[in-house]
Design a protein around this nucleic acid. Structure first.
Lengths: 235, 235
DNA sequence: AGTCCATTTATAACAGGGTTATGAGATACT
DNA sequence: AGTATCTCATAACCCTGTTATAAATGGACT
């Protein structure tokens, strides 16, 4: 509705176009000339707004973290914190599965700039206040872990350390799956991710029975959510 | 001792130079002209021996898997399979910590070619025979897991699925640590990797006491191994 | 030994990227 | 209105992957 685009509207459109081209054509599609053509400006726009391709890619990576956080935020809290952890995991995996190229950049896998949002000493009292963008995603796991501890499902423990364990496992599974291991989608989830979640929950203090019940609860919540959202689930 | 280099000796020297430049200067140092200058040939060598930079990078990635496998193979088998799993994890992490750039390429994080050794359906009976290079590393984890199950430390389970859980967690920790999360080396190991290992072992059927004893055994073995090898441990 | 053929290699050019110099246009403020 | 600043298009520059071409090398066969 704006014939004359606003001042830094170009900036946002460049990032949007970058993500679009990235998803469609992979990292090689992230080219200044292609971006400029897509948005309808010259390559100079990249330099006036970002200073170079590296900074633009950094912004794309940051956007990935923001989207992941937003997605995880949509996972509400129920009275079963372990089920919530499963739901977070499923959502985390779903985000990466839907936009693998974007999150490959976000997780620093293809960023040429090399500068990535480091969470530094997340598990120590100190460096945690230096909360960057990426920390928000981790915080969702931390909070659910905290509730699991408070509810007695997990043994008393440092919530950050316990959450870091869950995050490591989840991130590893998602990364390996995105790299092509673990085969088709449902297979990886049913054969590895869910058993992995049960293993971790039990190892952190839950009972096998309760953990399995929580996976069923999370599955039901997932199905209900997809039905409402009307998303043609690709997994 | 060979004044005149053999025929495809250039090929090996190119890969060696690539790994050297990669470790020293990061992915940006992987340039045809720099490689050629380093080896003392023209850039044509890259094309006669590999067909292009993409294939050369693939070879570098493959070399990473080979080195990882070789390193894991050095971890012997003791009568404590859970301790062996800890030792494998420590070794896996050590390899990545010592050559982060190489394994960033190996794990497909920076490969522009996009073609990576996919392990496909590792957890199904079928696709496992299509054993690629990278499978050897995974096999070490599978075998240790199998022994843990046979020894009664882990509950009876599909060894591939259980090993895939361990691999996911380990790979996730290593990846996140290499990205700068989890802070300094010892911190990440003591605060996250070891507790994560205990959590997984317990979740798979081990007792807390036995799992903790195995971590101590693995620590002792690690110290003894570093003493003998005389490696100035950076972790 | 001499000749032929395949492979390897160097040189030089091409193509496609990121980046920069420069000036024109637009925008905002006085 | 005038001026300063920001934004952007044009055109060039440099660097990197790649390729065309021909020289050189080395082995195989007669």
């Amino acid at each position: 509705m704006s014939p004359k685009p606003r001042a830094n509207d170009v900036k946002e459109r460049l990032v949007a176009a970058a993500i679009r081209l990235l998803d469609e054509g992979g990292p090689e599609a992230l080219q200044a000339r292609k971006l400029a053509a897509e948005v309808g400006v010259s390559t100079m726009a990249v330099y006036t707004h970002f200073g170079g391709m590296a900074a633009l890619v950094d912004e794309v990576a940051r956007t990935g973290f923001v989207r992941l956080s937003a997605w995880l935020a949509e996972v509400g809290e129920t009275d079963d914190p372990v089920a919530d952890i499963f739901s977070l995991a499923r959502t985390y995996r779903q985000a990466v599965a839907e936009q693998p190229q974007l999150f490959a950049v976000t997780f620093g896998q293809a960023a040429p700039g090399g500068k990535r949002a480091t969470l530094s000493d997340l598990t120590t009292e100190e460096g945690r206040e230096a909360a960057q963008e990426g920390l928000e995603a981790f915080d969702h796991i931390v909070r659910a872990t905290e509730r699991a501890i408070e509810a007695g499902r997990f043994r008393p423990a440092d919530k950050y350390q316990a959450a870091a364990q869950l995050w490591s496992a989840l991130h590893g599974f998602v990364t390996l799956e995105a790299s092509g291991h673990f085969g088709a989608a449902e297979q990886g989830i049913d054969h590895i991710l869910i058993p992995l979640g049960i293993t971790l929950a039990v190892g952190l203090g839950d009972t096998v029975e309760q953990a399995e019940r929580s996976t069923e609860a999370a599955k039901a919540a997932w199905r209900a959510r997809n039905r409402n959202a009307g998303q043609g689930g690709n997994d």
